[in-house]
């Protein structure tokens, strides 16, 4: 399952980032790492970005990015 498939309001754990080192660097620089828990807060319409909560910070992720974040729907705090 990727982050893009997650329903609004659900809390999931990141398994791995699968977009090459460039994207991985960008995500980790914004504090998004494998093992972290994210909650999808909002979705912008018309193929717009997702708004996710990671450790209490709100980050907008484009759909192309969200497609490359693999997550599992398992115990999260």
């Amino acid at each position: 399952m990727v982050l893009l498939d997650v329903k609004k309001g659900d809390l999931v754990r990141i398994l791995r980032l699968d977009g090459g080192t460039g994207l991985e660097d960008k995500l980790t620089q914004h504090g998004i790492y494998p093992g972290d828990c994210v909650r999808v807060l909002r979705e912008a319409p018309m193929g717009g970005p997702l708004l996710v909560d990671v450790h209490g910070r709100e980050i907008a992720l484009g759909r192309g990015v969200a497609k490359k974040i693999f997550v599992e729907d398992k115990e999260c705090e």
Binding site: P49, E58, I59, A60, G62, G64
Partner: peptide
């Protein structure tokens, strides 16, 4: 060339 997509912190 494809752009990686948005990653942007939304401040309070």
């Amino acid at each position: 060339e494809d752009t990686p997509g948005l990653i942007l912190e939304i401040p309070p």
